[in-house]
Write a protein that binds this DNA or RNA. Structure first.
Length: 496
RNA sequence: GGGUCAUUAGCUCAGCUGGCAGAGCACCUGACUCUUAAUCAGGAUGUCGCAGGUUCGAAUCCUGCAUGACCCA
């Protein structure tokens, strides 16, 4: 069976109309068109003018957009054109545009792109509209759009065919405009604070800087396996060694794990490193970045998320992990405790652990299982156990812990930061402990990285570092329930 | 990885205890020069996700698979 025969009636009708345009000398996929206004420009400029005043002014405009509604009534028609800024009504009369153009407009389908020149006027109902003097056919749509009233609801279709989602559901575009503005607001803020934006490799020979499984790829000419980066960290610290004192990168990282409402295999991280700073300074930096982004993009630092009011006004709560666990479970991990005792406490409190876990892992499990989800308002949680923090500096008073914090908002991690470990001897021991964990079956444990250790051996100044998940931040600022709602093209299986 | 639910026309959805596959929008034909989910008259539209099974008969019941959503790990 040929494709021609398989095509259903709806598709065939549009192909026939395309052929009809060509027969009448009109290119169905036209050319450059110079417009003077966007829909929003016209609505904003003339909305508060009276019908009579507008008539007197006789304002000429040229607009272009996708035909999204059409109401034909004989020798005159109303329709709506949609451009990036919104929809505007056009009024096309046969006695004004002429027989030929009215015919062209008459055969136009919903979805086609049209250009219209005319004058701005108000209808009897008060809608600011454009009365066409001429209609130019710009581009044919060979497929029907989703239903005009209900739009596109099927979430699978919305993600797979995001262009349809963007056409039919205007709030989707708003989300991605916020995303774009959040990222540029962060850039502007950091640039203004003297941080230097850099770019480092996304193809790594050793996948480090985080606890995650990497994607593996292959370089043919060099005949070596490479890993898609799981973090930016280790390269940025090499730059600190090199004397670039305040650097940041906003970029994609890749983690080979499941997809969920909070996880996509590729996502966007901000990482920032500042020489001579510690994790307390980085808490201030984190507050400032997020607070600034909210106020600049949304105009407020009080936001709504999933029905909760979240206060992003500074300062945010700063609590130690040990204190929070004590607060929520009564268990005091600050006193000295054997691994066996920690395991016994986990069992008593219904905290699930694996046999290989030691004191620090178990404290972390207490936190994740009993506390994390309760931290709705912004809270810096600091003092993470050594075992789960192989790149963070040890706490000076209690070496079981590190000078590290994570930021929690609406029960989710939004940032991870520490006073960086700059002692190459200690760093080597941490890597060795991680390699041991890997041998015991933790496939997210950090690999040995001799090249990074060598860099540290040249001397890294005391440094504070930060990672912020941009996607989760955008979710927070747009009240989005799923990471897929803030990714234009979320990862999907190749089907359909 | 486990559980629950979903998959029917281009889109949004009905379809009960198994008995001729439906509606609205969109589409086609006609009428209509201030409509706006335009209206009126008429018409056409299907791999019921895929593959098996039960049955005289399956969109409907059973099994497996695929894709997706949500919850859990």
């Amino acid at each position: 069976m040929t494709q021609e025969e398989e095509r259903n009636e709806l598709l065939q009708v549009r192909r026939d109309k395309m052929d009809g345009l060509r027969e009448r000398g009109i290119d169905p996929f036209g050319r450059k068109y110079e417009r003077t206004h966007r829909a929003e420009d016209i609505l904003a400029a003339f909305d508060d003018q009276s019908k009579e005043d507008l008539e007197e002014e006789n304002v000429s405009v040229t607009i272009a957009g996708r035909l999204v509604a059409k109401r034909k009534q004989g020798k005159a028609s109303f329709a709506h054109l949609q451009d990036q800024t919104g929809r505007i009504q056009i009024y096309v009369r046969k006695d004004r545009v002429g027989e030929e153009q009215y015919e062209t407009f008459g055969t136009a389908d919903l979805g086609d792109w049209l250009g219209v020149s005319g004058t701005v006027f108000k209808t009897n109902r008060g809608e600011t509209s454009v009365k066409a003097d001429s209609v130019t056919f710009l581009s044919k749509s060979l497929r029907p759009l989703p239903e005009k009233f209900h739009g596109l609801k099927d979430v699978e279709l919305r993600y797979r065919k995001r262009y349809l989602d963007l056409i039919m559901n205007p709030e989707v575009k708003d989300t991605f405009i916020v995303r774009s503005r959040v990222i540029s607001a962060i850039r502007r803020y950091l640039d203004g604070q003297g941080y230097l934006e850099v770019e480092t490799p996304t193809l790594h020979t050793i996948p480090g800087g985080a606890a995650a499984r990497p994607f593996i790829t292959h370089h043919n000419a060099l005949d070596i396996d490479l890993y898609m980066r799981i973090a930016i960290e280790l390269h940025l610290k090499r730059l600190i060694v090199g004397g670039m004192e305040k650097v940041y990168e906003i970029g994609r990282v890749y983690r080979n794990e499941g997809v969920s409402t909070r996880h996509n295999p590729e996502f966007t991280m901000l990482e920032l490193y500042e020489a001579f700073a510690d994790f307390h300074d980085i808490m201030d930096v984190t507050e400032n970045i997020i607070n600034h982004a909210a106020r600049e993009v949304l105009g407020t630092d009080t936001i709504q998320y999933a029905g909760e009011t979240i206060h992003l006004s500074k300062p945010w709560a700063r609590k130690s992990m040990v204190d929070l666990v004590r607060e929520h479970t009564g268990v005091d991990f600050s006193r000295s405790m054997s691994d066996d005792e920690a395991r016994r406490l986990a069992e008593e409190h219904g905290v699930q652990i694996t046999p290989a876990m030691t004191f620090g892992h178990i404290l972390n499990e207490f936190f994740e299982q009993k506390v994390e989800e309760k931290l709705i308002q912004p809270t810096f949680v600091y003092g993470h156990p050594l075992e789960i923090s192989p790149l963070a500096r040890k706490n000076a008073d209690d070496p079981r812990f590190t000078d590290r914090f994570e930021l929690f908002i609406v029960g989710r991690e939004h940032a991870n930061a520490f006073t960086e470990l700059n002692d190459p001897v200690d760093q080597r021991e941490r890597f060795e402990a991680q390699v041991k964990e890997k041998a015991q079956g933790n496939d997210e444990a950090h690999p040995m990285d001799e090249d990074f250790l060598e860099a540290l051996e040249y001397g890294m100044p005391p440094t504070g570092g930060l990672g912020i998940g941009i996607d989760r931040l955008v979710m927070l600022l747009t009240d989005s329930a799923s990471i897929r709602d803030v990714l234009l093209f979320p990862a999907m299986r190749d089907q359909g």
